[in-house]
Simulated scan of single mutants.
Amino acid sequence: MMWRRMGCMGAVLAALLGGCGGGGDDPEASITDPVQRCSSIGTQPLVANGTACVPSASTPVLLLLVVDRNGEVGSCSGVKVAPGRVLTAAHCVDASARAVVGVLWDGQGNATQVRAQSWVAHPAFSETPQYFVNDVAVVSFADPLPSPAVPVMLSQSSGKGQAILLSGWGAPDYVLSVGSALIDEVRDDYLRITYDGTLSNACPGDSGGPATRVIGGRQVVVGLVSAGTGGCNPGGRTFFSNLAKPQVSDFIRAQAAGAELL
C-alpha cells in the first residue's frame, strides 16, 4: 500500500491537508515528548499533550499537492534538502502527475502555494508485492524556498534497533505531525518499522516524508516514507526508502544540487 493520499477535491488546494507521524541515534531511546518531537522539525506542538505541530516557516517538512491528468488532487509529504530542492517519494510524482504544488507557511501561520518548476523520479523506480524499490524523487522550484534545509545521510545506512523520527502531513488528522519509531529491519532497499500501538506509524499522505536520526547533534534524513502494510493499525509495517543505497545516493547527488550530503 502506497502512503499517498488520493482522490482529494480541488478545494483542498485552498483548505490544505495535514499528517501522522513517527525517533534519534540512540538504539534504546525514542523521543516521546511532544515539544522535542516538534522542535526536531523547527516547530512547536499544536496541542500540549500531542504530537501534531503548528505549521511554520521554520520547518523543512513540506505538504505537496499533486494534480493528475484528470485534475484530481492528491497529497504527499516532502523534505527540503537544498534552497530549491525537495525530496519526496517517486510514486508521488508518477507518470500521471501534471502539476506539483508546494505549500509554504509564514510566521503568522498563513499558507501560500508555489508551483514546482519540475520533478524527476528515480529512473529505476519499481514495485514489489510489499514495498517499492528506489522510491525517491526530487522536486525542483524556480526560487529558493524560505524554510531551512536538512542534511541527508548517504554514506552509511541506519541499523536495526535505532530510533528515528518520522514526519508527514498524512492521516489520521492531516496536520503536520512527528512521531517516534524503532527500526526493526534494514535491507539495501529499505528501512522498516513495525507498529505495535505504543510508538508511531506512517499513514496515507505521509509518503515522501522524512525519517531522521540524530547524527553529530543534528537531525539528518536517513529515509523517506514509501509504503506500508496493514494500514495505520497495530501490526502494520512501514517501509522507508534507504537513502544510503548506492543507486539512490547517486541519484540524489545528481539531482539535489546544493544539498548537504553526509
Rank of each mutant, 00 (worst) to 15 (best):
G7K: 00
G10N: 15
A11D: 10
V12G: 12
A14E: 13
A15V: 11
L17I: 05
L17R: 14
C20N: 15
G24P: 02
D25C: 01
D25Q: 13
P27L: 05
P27G: 14
A29T: 12
P34L: 07
R37F: 04
R37Y: 01
C38V: 06
S40G: 06
I41F: 04
P45F: 00
L46K: 10
L46Q: 15
V47L: 11
V47P: 00
A48T: 14
G50N: 08
C53S: 06
C53I: 06
P55L: 03
S56R: 01
S58L: 04
T59R: 01
T59P: 04
V61G: 09
V61F: 07
L63E: 14
L65Q: 15
L65F: 06
V66H: 05
D68E: 09
D68H: 09
R69W: 05
R69P: 05
G71V: 02
G71C: 02
E72Q: 14
C76S: 13
S77Q: 05
V79Q: 06
T88K: 03
T88C: 08
C92M: 06
V93T: 15
D94S: 15
D94T: 11
A97F: 01
A99L: 04
V100Q: 11
V101R: 13
G102T: 09
G102I: 00
G102S: 12
G109H: 09
N110W: 00
N110P: 01
A111R: 09
Q113F: 01
